[in-house]
Design a protein around this nucleic acid. Structure first.
Lengths: 145, 145
DNA sequence: ACAGATAAAGATAAAAAACTCTTAATTTTA
DNA sequence: TAAAATTAAGAGTTTTTTATCTTTATCTGT
């Protein structure tokens, strides 16, 4: 498995997709998102429900409803998405899973791991959802084969 | 959860512990290891069975038996332990979990993630099990509260 | 050769994560 | 106001991960 949970992978792909597809003020339905990012529809629905509750994406019911993002959502950092789904263990936890591990009582991997952990955090912290739109628009990056 | 599976965390802690405790040619039993790294004994037994089959640790049955490491084991890189347990997805996989993602068909996170992934790999690749012994010996690092 | 100590193996169980299905609530539009 | 479209919510199911328990095989010392 990767460094993020599957749920988190779907979440990230979904926010990228929604941001990309609703840049002009539209909305996009769950079916289309699931299809667009190749994820199980009902499972993704649960994830988006949660992201919606946490205000990371916006949603509207009824005809012409769907998911979209407002300016606040677009400016959210990727770290906020990850934290909402996987918690902050990735940013703060010990590489060996030791609870007590800290600067003053480090595990053997502590110093090496700290560097990695901080870089993961920085990467996610320094990028907002909308940052990824340009490359998606240009077709430089993609979310599906 | 962290970036490694729990199984992998136990595995790394165990090899550090074994290396540390058998530096003078002894052996150490499963009960003592489990206690020493605060892991469930029977579960750890399974993990060590596996690491033993893969020659990452050595084992001997019978009285005065237990786990230990020979020179080859001590020189193994941490990346070998991680790969044995969690596979190489951590070193090669896409951050968003997309199978097709590659240099020529990158996902939105590809370039940012690549850096992280390589650093994780380098960290694990550049350290051998025995590298961690000194600090454990000096009491600078620890595997249990 | 026997008793005891130990890891190996196998079978099972519990918990968590991933996934599915059904129903309810909300909104729009005719 | 009724029908249709859509997300929200709830209640499962399946799969994977983590953990436990029991039995077997192997080794050592006497």
């Amino acid at each position: 498995m990767g460094i993020f949970s599957k749920t988190c992978e779907y979440a990230m792909r979904a926010v990228f997709f929604i941001a990309h597809r609703t840049a002009e003020g539209g909305k996009v339905g769950i079916k289309e998102i699931a299809e667009g990012i190749d994820s199980p529809e009902h499972f993704l629905a649960k994830i988006l429900q949660d992201l919606s509750r946490r205000n990371i994406v916006k949603s509207a019911k009824g005809p012409n409803g769907g998911f979209y993002m407002d300016n606040i959502s677009l400016k959210r950092r990727l770290s906020e998405v990850v934290e909402a789904v996987d918690g902050n263990g990735l940013f703060t936890g010990c590489g060996l899973g030791l609870h007590y591990c800290s600067e003053t009582n480090p595990c053997p991997l502590h110093n090496e791991f700290k560097v990695i952990r901080n870089q993961i955090f920085n990467m996610l912290q320094n990028t907002t959802i909308e940052d990824f739109n340009e490359d998606l628009n240009l077709g430089i990056t993609s979310l599906k084969k």
